[in-house]
Design a protein around this nucleic acid. Structure first.
Length: 804
RNA sequence: GCCGCUGUGGCGGAAUUGGCAGACGCACACGACUCAAAAUCGUGCGGGAAACCAUAUGGGUUCGACUCCCAUCAGCGGCACCA
């Protein structure tokens, strides 16, 4: 008689057992494998089944690597500074330090239900002064290297979160966090010069084993383009205006020029007649929000009254101002070729500016142009000495030709902008800078770090552009570290991304008070081999982390340039009809009840069984019955087999090796959903065998247990013990399939006539082509007309007879 | 508008990468056990009476197409005046 599967008892038993005797230990001999989860921010809502999925995937992978002989670094921590934590605290009316600590405790307990092999000795928390000391230290280093600088300009401002935002945090003109429409606000800001790393961030994408989608998003975001800067003289003045263009081949077709309203020369180009209109336009543009500017596709503009001179043919072209030209890209000024650019075309049509075609389309000049011809392909026309050249060739050569003649130069531009790094909020790392009237900006000396975030009563954002810290005189007023004069502290804090940009380096040396991470440990345990998390951070956290790592490499703090070798993005778990789980929609499925009713092992397996791990999946509670039934049947098979104690038959041995082969293959290709269905399928086959033989041999069952262990660790461990082992199943080695033992002597092969299956025959696996076809023909003899055109035998796959 | 991904039974999905489409599950139906129900076990389960027809739609390549090519449609995601 076998005892029924009782998930509660065995899960409780092994959870405490593993706590006392950790299964993942560093013996100093095993190679390391670093498998990392994107660490969560401690939300008050707790975990739902969607969070589980990512953690289960990473734990299965970690346990698999463990069984493959690695010491697996699998840590967990808390991204606890920043807007989500602070907004939650404000809503609940408690201090963020308090609510954050509570939420961490709660989520940590929930994560415990997963029974993952997290090494809690490595835990980090971005709000811990011992941690953010190093977040601040990095900032000071960047400041000293000239990568952190102050600038006043109209930044993205979220009126609801009452803080400035980075470009990456603005999605469709709205705040990435709260969805409020982002406006502009002129503010003094700390910036990080991420643009200095644009080229390396782009080039090194090639080295990464990341989803193509994410690499593409990053390279699009960095947005490299090749072109030329061309100097245009202003007619009748000494000034010149430099424009940036990616289409220098069309230079003869330029019929006007447009400057961004914010361009330094914009106002000065006005004549007495146009001054009023020009000033008005510049003012209006400055008042427009990003959203207005984006939504209004209808072109607006004003003529300055001045003309620019085309350096090639000395043609005078009018200079306009328009807000479709961005001030902070290229030179903030463009030459406009309406014949070959959609935007210029729309502008020219609206303001009745001439259009000159300079590339023949299909070998012709178009009579009445109704749209721009934007392809760089065709023969040059109306272009002086360039006539007759191929546009694509000229596009590449023109910048160098201009350079030789001193009219311009070849340039490269990036869409990537510097990173707006200060936040006018309380809950973040204070920026460790002192403003001294004599010395200017002076960093807090490294030995005085961390600069602690002061405890305050009122931490709500002010909305004035000042941080709440600005109200604490005792904190703000200080002495200059350089000269000792009265000075004031910087009161802005860092964005949430500051801590998360480097936290993964800290896990392996989280108690080090002398260094961010020791050189020795960094070399030994870093970087991350596998990083698992959602795709939503493609151009945020994942870009910032790469930037930080490259910087730390440059100053010699680490000896690698890329933080994450392999990246896996798991799909989102949604509610019915693909609707994102959220409290407000009321469609959140919490794991707690499912763990109670079905057990951790069942939920772990179901999280994987719902679908391919990289795709989104709609959650349906009912499906969990399937994996639960599987575990019960497997449990019974294992116990029955132990009791029956049968000797291995050739059939069992063959099936065992096929099982090992299939599961390993699917696991290696990260097809985790089919690993689960594979378990079920093989379990069904073994149950059939057991019906006749009374059970399955010990070696086969033990192999099955090891394969199952990463997925259903408690069941596997308990049965392993019942099978008489003292040591944990996780000290075993992953079984190897012997392919020669998998071979079938006889195989089933379909016989087709004209590609349609008419019969299935059993033949010897090593049969000759002639014999196979003969056997096939015999099986479908009644359907053959005798008019055979072709006979095909693909060994072990198919026989196809083609007849007329 | 541009770029990318996806489209297979009532549902989630599988198909060794061009070789028997629908594995494995869910749901459902019937049967066994039970006084009964649950649980469990067994059988069936794309459509069609059949020939056959079926992998979003239309074409193509091939002995053979869910898989490759061309066009179209639908859904999701990214970017969006970056000159």
């Amino acid at each position: 008689m076998s005892a029924p599967y009782n998930h509660k008892a065995i899960e409780q038993k092994w959870r405490s057992n593993w706590q006392e005797n950790p299964v993942n230990v560093n013996d100093g001999k095993k190679p390391k494998y670093y498998c990392l989860d994107m660490f969560p921010y401690p939300s008050g809502n707790g975990l739902h089944v969607g969070h589980w999925r990512g953690y289960v995937i990473s734990d299965v992978w970690s346990r698999y690597k463990m069984l493959k002989g690695y010491y697996v670094i699998h840590p967990m921590g808390w991204d606890a500074f920043g807007l989500p934590a602070e907004n939650y605290a404000i809503k609940m009316g408690v201090h963020p330090a308090k609510s954050t600590a509570e939420n961490v405790a709660n989520i940590k307990k929930q994560i415990g239900d997963i029974s993952a092999i997290y090494d809690w000795d490595m835990e980090v928390n971005t709000t811990d002064p011992a941690f953010y000391k190093w977040t601040q230290w990095i900032f000071v280093k960047m400041f000293k290297e000239g990568l952190a600088y102050e600038k006043e300009f109209p930044i993205n401002w979220c009126p609801s979160c009452k803080t400035g935002l980075a470009n990456e945090e603005v999605v469709n003109g709205c705040c990435e966090r709260c969805g409020a429409e982002v406006t502009k606000k002129n503010l003094r800001q700390w910036m990080l010069k991420i643009t200095k790393y644009a080229e390396r961030l782009l080039a090194d994408l090639d080295k990464l084993d990341w989803p193509e989608k994410v690499k593409k998003m990053q390279s699009d975001w960095i947005g490299k383009s090749y072109g030329a800067e061309v100097d245009f003289a202003v007619d009748g003045r000494d000034e010149k205006i430099t424009v940036y263009t990616t289409r220098p081949d069309t230079l003869y077709g330029a019929t006007f020029m447009v400057l961004a309203p914010e361009h330094a020369l914009a106002a000065g180009l006005a004549t007495p007649e146009t001054k009023e209109a020009v000033d008005q336009y510049i003012y209006d543009a400055s008042m427009k929000s990003n959203v207005d500017r984006l939504q209004d596709k209808e072109k607006t503009g004003v003529f300055t009254g001045s003309y620019a001179v085309n350096p090639l043919n000395q043609a005078k072209i009018p200079i306009w101002l328009s807000d479709y030209v961005l001030a902070d890209y290229g030179t903030g000024a463009i030459m406009c070729v309406p014949a070959h650019d959609d935007r210029d075309f729309a502008f020219a049509k609206k303001f009745d500016i001439p259009i000159i075609q300079v590339i023949a389309k299909d070998g012709k000049e178009i009579e009445d142009m109704t749209e721009a011809y934007t392809e760089a392909s065709g023969i040059m026309i109306n272009s002086g000495e360039w006539n007759g050249m191929e546009s694509a060739v000229l596009k590449k050569e023109a910048p160098h030709m201009m350079e030789k003649r001193g009219l311009g130069k070849a340039t490269v531009n990036y869409k990537l902008r510097d990173w707006v790094f200060s936040r006018q909020r309380y809950w973040g790392e204070p920026i460790p800078i002192v403003h001294c009237p004599k010395c200017g900006n002076v960093p807090v000396p490294e030995e005085e770090l961390p600069l602690q975030l002061p405890d305050v009563e009122s931490y709500e954002p002010t909305g004035t552009g000042e941080s709440p810290l600005a109200a604490i005189d005792a904190w703000v007023n200080c002495k200059c570290p350089a000269c000792g004069a009265d000075a004031k502290r910087e009161t802005n804090t860092m964005p949430q991304w500051a801590g998360s940009s480097w936290y993964f380096l800290r896990y392996v040396d989280n108690h080090n008070s002398e260094e961010l991470v020791s050189k020795e440990k960094a070399h030994k345990y870093l970087p991350v081999d596998m990083y698992i998390g959602g795709v939503e951070h493609a151009v945020l956290h994942l870009l910032y982390s790469r930037f930080y790592t490259k910087f730390l490499y440059d100053i010699g703090a680490v000896d690698f340039e890329e933080p994450f070798h392999k990246l896996f993005n798991q799909g989102m778990i949604t509610g019915k009809n693909g609707i994102k789980m959220s409290k407000s929609k009321g469609n959140v499925v919490a794991p707690d009840d499912l763990v109670r009713d079905y057990g951790c092992d069942s939920l772990r397996m179901y999280e994987l069984f719902v679908g391919p791990p990289e795709l989104d999946a709609e959650w349906d509670d009912r499906g969990i019955d399937g994996v639960s039934r599987f575990l019960k049947r497997f449990w019974k098979l294992a116990l029955d087999s132990q009791e029956a104690n049968v000797a291995a038959t050739p059939e069992m041995i063959k099936l065992r090796h096929k099982l090992i082969y299939d599961i390993t293959q699917r696991l290696e290709s990260f097809s985790l959903n089919t690993v689960i269905s594979g378990f079920m399928e093989y379990n069904n086959k073994f149950m059939e065998i057991a019906k006749k033989a009374g059970g399955v041999d010990k070696e086969t069952m033990e192999s099955f247990l090891i394969l199952l262990a990463p997925f259903a660790p408690h069941v596997a461990e308990e049965l392993w013990e019942i099978y008489g082992h003292d040591a944990s199943i996780f000290t075993s080695a992953w079984p190897e399939a012997d392919e020669s033992a998998m071979k079938d002597d006889e195989i089933e092969v379909p016989v087709q006539i004209n590609g349609k299956t008419r019969a299935v025959i059993r033949i010897a696996a090593d049969i000759s082509k002639e014999d196979a076809i003969a056997a096939g023909k015999e099986a479908v003899a009644d359907k053959l007309t005798g008019n055979i055109v072709k006979e095909i035998y693909v060994p072990k796959k198919i026989i196809n007879i083609v007849q007329k």
